[in-house]
Amino acid sequence: MKTYNLTHLKQLEAESIFVIREVAAQFERPVLLFSGGKDSIVMTRLAQKAFWPARLPFPLLHVDTGHNFPETIEYRDNLAKDIGAELVVRYVQDSIDKGRVKEETGYNASRNMLQTVTLLDALEEFQFDAAMGGARRDEEKARAKERFFSHRTEFGQWDPKNQRPELWNLFNGKKNFGEHFRVFPLSNWTEMDIWQYIALENLPLPTIYFSHEREVIERSGTLLATSEFLTLNDQEVPSKRIVRFRTVGDMTCTGAVESEANSVQDIIGEVAAARVTERGGRADDKRSETAMEDRKKEGYF
């Protein structure tokens, strides 16, 4: 007798497509949060598959901190054009100019925390009631308990003790006016799954994921790219190194790794041998033991 089995990547793909379609069906104004990082690129591909041959029934939203790598912005614009998706961009700079947030200053300044306000403002401006993000449960311990459909109060906040149980493949997106949901279609993917899928689907990526020469400084064991946004102290001397990035965040807090990996296959080899998590290079997570949990409660992704 013939056996009907799906490989684990095909099962993950089918699950994510199911979740994305549920979002389109259960909400009035969903949006897909696009950061230009590999996870949001995979999520966008899955969304394309979910509705093909139609276009995405929701826009992409990018919260631009103004400190992004220029390669990411270029990639974002091209992708939106290629798949015919509507792209909405909102700027942290505007939130600063309007006095909605106060810019951090000094040595460890980062706009990472400020994104939350810009994001919540954008959700309100467009009345988005479901925002899909590429976060994965394997990334960080506070995310291990996140639901696919994560309910947020009218203040956009996450209450870890008051999340709805999710059983089988039944998702409850009911909410009161003014509340919204964060939805994580990639919840069950790991970093390795993402890379294998990128290889399987032959997805193009922003160039900063691959090995290149860049001027960096070393700070608390992390290599940071020098740029006009990074304040150096007297001891920090920039040097040129062959590096690549494992995640795409702000230039001020995303650590590079020294690497010769030029292709997705090289990167897969590197990930398989890696002894440090991908967020190990994120200065924003190192602020405290529960940095992610605290940011999530405030409305961060």
């Binding site: 394997d138 506070a142 291990a144 308990k145 870890p160 003790k161 999340q163 790991t190 529960t290 949990e293």
Partner: peptide
Amino acid sequence: DGLRSEREQGITIDVAYRY
């Protein structure tokens, strides 16, 4: 043991997923 309240009490209070 992911969440702060769990670490303080030393018990697991919700379903957590591991890979």
